[in-house]
Amino acid sequence: MQNMEPSDDITLAGTDPIEFLKSQNEMLKSQLMSTSLIHELTKVLHSCTDFESIIKTVLLAIQEILEFDRVILFEINKDKFSLQTSNFVGISSVEVNHLSIPLGFDGGEITDALFLNRHIIIEEPDPSNIFFKELHSTSYLVIPLISKINKRCWEAKHCEKTFCPAHGSINPYCWSIMGCGQLNNAKSEDHRRHFCIECNNFKVDGVLWMDRFQRKTPISSDDVTI
């Protein structure tokens, strides 16, 4: 992993600015579409007094309505810099309670989904993949749970480091922008992620993992944008 120095210039060599903006706009639209259902879910979770019951109800609804066999909600453990099992349906506690996924690059696709702020569908995972090894899952979907962003990071922090790619970006999800974190002088991607999860502008509440272990039916983006 190449280190990122705060003095590095952010360049788009050989890139048409208009095409770059279009691609950024499409990426943002994709992120917003893929998390529209999740925004509603998160609002329900935050407004409920019986937190444990509503989570279980929501997971059961996902299992039934979206026709997934196993659904796991992971929460972020800042102290351990990892994802830990929070709640689940369609699977036993013996199978999932020990699962711990590092938030660094070695965490794989589920942490990529979190820090790219988009859903990821995994088909034919590598044999070393934790969900393949531990849960024998051959295809699954991961979706980050995102809260509403009221103010962009450079505005909230009064940041003047205009060379940071997050500064002035149309993408409000600063943690999903490669090379951001200039205010903290992040030296690597893992270093940046450590700073991100401690930041007040980081609005990821957890990650949903789900598969069709019994049904064996394909998973597509249509399962996310319902």
Rank of each mutant, 00 (worst) to 15 (best):
G107F: 10
G107H: 07
G107P: 13
G107Y: 14
G107K: 06
G108Y: 04
I110C: 07
I110Q: 02
I110P: 04
I110G: 02
D112M: 06
D112T: 05
D112Q: 10
A113C: 13
L114C: 15
L114W: 14
F115S: 07
F115Y: 15
F115A: 04
L116C: 08
L116D: 15
N117P: 05
N117M: 06
N117C: 15
R118H: 14
I120T: 12
I122C: 04
I122N: 04
E123D: 11
E123I: 04
P125Q: 10
P125D: 11
D126P: 03
P127S: 11
P127N: 13
S128I: 02
S128C: 03
N129V: 10
N129C: 15
N129E: 13
I130A: 08
I130H: 14
I130N: 10
F132V: 05
K133A: 13
K133V: 15
E134K: 14
E134S: 15
L135N: 14
S137R: 13
S139C: 11
Y140K: 09
L141R: 06
I143G: 04
I143H: 03
P144S: 02
P144W: 00
P144N: 06
K148T: 15
I149Q: 12
N150F: 15
K151F: 05
R152D: 12
C153Q: 02
C153M: 03
W154R: 03
E155Q: 15
E155Y: 00
A156H: 07
A156S: 10
A156V: 10
H158M: 02
H158Q: 12
C159D: 10
C159F: 00
K161N: 01
K161S: 00
F163H: 14
F163L: 09
C164V: 02
P165R: 07
A166R: 00
H167G: 01
H167A: 01
G168T: 10
S169P: 09
I170W: 13
N171S: 10
P172C: 11
Y173P: 04
C174F: 15
C174M: 12
C174G: 01
C174T: 12
C174P: 03
C174Q: 02
C174I: 02
S176T: 06
S176C: 09
I177H: 09
I177T: 09
M178F: 10
C180L: 01
C180P: 01
Q182E: 09
L183R: 00
L183G: 00
N184L: 01
N184Q: 06
A186R: 00
A186S: 15
